[in-house]
């Protein structure tokens, strides 16, 4: 087996006295789509935020493409150019139009000329069918449209891996599919992705690997058929049972 693209080894993270990640281990190979599932507060979002250094880890090690990206001395701004993240609450910049949101980082961080960045932004917006909204402000878009723009904003940096943090949790049900369709396209194009998600049906469909997180560790991992069809651990089984009871799987 080749070395994994993202390798997370024995990662610990505390928020004050709260021990959130308790020696988490996870590996993501290139072009893999890995879905993190698990109950609220199990550390899914924290793990994603640690990978691109939005949170500092308190123990263990995170490597991307063989290069250690945790700990002191890491150029986080360089790291984040390779690691895109999309948040549950979109976090578009409300004072900028859609295209300005997408162009900001390519111009200011990558140093692209404005025309090049604009071309790139329009190309991406066209791909998600929002080029007509390029000059609108985020608050005038639906939640689904905002989240699609947020995905494009991350993609405009040309990341090598995308971290998606429950990106459909804040959306009305009828808007979920328009966002998931984009993620599906990205998966088909071979984008390496790590998703924290509650959309079990979607995880089952696109994931190369599903990891069940509980109390800050990966309790069980495997191909989706195995995790959803024949879970080994009691905790995984009871989690999936409550999902099914709520009619979400």
């Amino acid at each position: 087996m080749t070395t994994p693209f993202i390798e997370i080894t024995e990662v610990h993270k505390y928020f004050g006295p709260n021990h959130v990640l308790r020696g988490t281990n996870l590996a993501v190979a290139e072009h893999q789509v890995v879905c993190l599932i698990g109950p609220s507060g199990c550390g899914k979002s924290t793990l994603l935020r640690c990978i691109n250094s939005l949170e500092q880890i308190d123990g263990g090690e995170i490597c991307i493409d063989g290069d250690r990206v945790s700990g002191p001395g890491v150029d986080v701004n360089r790291l984040r150019q390779d690691v895109g993240i999309v948040f549950q609450s979109f976090n578009l910049f409300p004072h900028m139009s859609v295209i300005e949101n997408v162009m900001l980082a390519p111009v200011k961080v990558l140093g692209l000329a404005r025309e090049d960045a604009q071309g790139r932004a329009l190309f991406l917006l066209h791909r998600i069918g929002l080029d007509a909204k390029a000059d609108e402000y985020p608050d005038r878009l639906s939640g689904g449209q905002q989240q699609r723009v947020a995905i494009v904003r991350a993609l405009a940096m040309g990341p090598r891996v995308m971290l998606l943090d429950e990106i459909t949790s804040a959306l009305d049900p009828e808007l979920v599919s328009e966002v998931l369709n984009i993620v599906r396209d990205l998966a088909e194009e071979g984008m390496t992705m790590l998703l924290a998600t509650h959309e079990m049906g979607f995880a089952r469909e696109v994931a190369s690997k599903v990891c069940f997180l509980s109390d800050g560790i990966v309790l069980e991992e495997g191909p989706p058929e195995q995790i959803f069809g024949d879970p080994q651990k009691d905790r995984t089984r009871s989690f999936l049972r409550s999902i099914i009871e709520a009619g979400r799987l």
């Binding site: 691109n52 701004n77 984040r80 948040f87 976090n91 004072h95 980082a105 961080v109 991350a154």
Partner: peptide, 28 residues
């Protein structure tokens, strides 16, 4: 803080995050 998180996650440095994302919204 999620605005700062979004800006930093795109690779913008702290001063640039202030300059392009935080201060323009704060001034309004």
């Amino acid at each position: 803080w999620s605005q700062t998180a979004a800006a930093r996650s795109l690779g913008l440095s702290y001063p640039r995050t202030l300059r392009y994302v935080v201060v323009p919204q704060a001034v309004r």
